[in-house]
Amino acid sequence: MSVLRTAVVTGASSGIGAASARALAGAGFHVVCAARRSDRIESLAQEIAGTAVACDVTDPASVATLAEAVGDTLHVLVNNAGGAFDADPVELADAETWRAMYDVNVLGTLRVTQALLPALRASGDALILNVGSTAGRVAYEGGGGYTAAKHGTKVLTETLRLELCGEPVRISEIAPGMVRTDEFALVRFGGDAAKADAVYDGVAEPLVAEDVADAIAWIATRPSHVNIDELVIRPRAQAAQHKVHRVT
């Protein structure tokens, strides 16, 4: 009799999170969809026969509620909740905005991982997959706060892999480059659609959320002895952060 494998995806209300929940459900997981916007995750959970749990990863009490809802056993945790909240140069950056980015991208990942690690251990064969970014590898102008936060995600992941070596928990990071989703750039530019659209101007085929979700499901379904330490994924048009082919 096969054991029902369970997965938690944070930030599951849109973008990469929602696509990852669908991909993991398609791979046979019962998916707990966690995000702040309960209406969206309830609709998603109904679509994929999963479970919706309202959760704000910056709120310890909310994370504790998520852990209680998950129960004693968990097989996969996708720490996807995150985001960029500005594009200001360091000289003009707002410290509270930087604090907010660090809180959700790094401390949010820390809180959820700490809360769910006992259930992951209890499964005997688990995976923690943190959604980082190529911004966690290369700095660029106007990205100081976000790149600092995603570098934090990368180092948190590397440290956790060292500390849990020998335990039945794999630790992975996926680092997407240019991904066009409905909300990421729009949130970054404070709702300015023109600025958000300009990020992708001339790029015929940026990645979409489903591309990243497909890779996440692939990582989650490797044999238990195979650890994908990190996977950097970009569109063909993006050779590096500063090198993007645009059609004029």
Rank of each mutant, 00 (worst) to 15 (best):
F29I: 01
V70R: 02
S14G: 06
P118G: 14
N227V: 11
E141D: 14
A52H: 03
E158W: 01
T109S: 15
E183F: 04
E158A: 06
R246E: 06
A95D: 12
A139Q: 10
A21I: 00
P168A: 04
V212L: 08
F29C: 01
G108K: 04
S14Y: 01
G143D: 04
Y200P: 09
G166L: 08
R22E: 11
T73G: 01
V247Q: 15
V9D: 01
R137E: 07
K195A: 12
K195L: 10
A148L: 14
D86K: 05
G71R: 07
V244N: 08
A54V: 10
V247S: 15
M178I: 13
K154M: 11
A49H: 15
R99D: 09
V155C: 06
K154Y: 12
H75A: 03
N227Y: 06
E141N: 10
T109E: 02
A220D: 05
T221I: 12
R236L: 13
E173G: 02
G190K: 14
T159R: 08
R111H: 08
Q114E: 11
N79F: 02
E158K: 05
R236S: 04
A54N: 06
V57S: 00
A93I: 12
V9C: 02
E96R: 11
D103N: 08
A61F: 05
A149Y: 12
V32I: 14
T73W: 04
E68A: 15
A87E: 05
R170E: 01
P223K: 14
V104A: 02
Q114H: 15
E141F: 10
A23S: 11
V155N: 11
R236F: 09
V244T: 14
V63Q: 02
G136S: 07
E158V: 03
A196H: 03
R180E: 05
L77D: 02
A149L: 09
V8S: 13
C33S: 11
E158I: 02
A69M: 04
G202D: 06
A45D: 07
A95S: 14
I216H: 00
A69Y: 05
P118W: 14
H245Y: 15
A34Y: 05
L129E: 13
A100E: 12
L129K: 04
A87N: 15
L127F: 09
V112R: 06
I41T: 08
T181G: 03
G190F: 11
R99E: 10
V226N: 10
A148K: 13
R170H: 00
V131M: 06
Q238C: 05
E210G: 00
G17K: 03
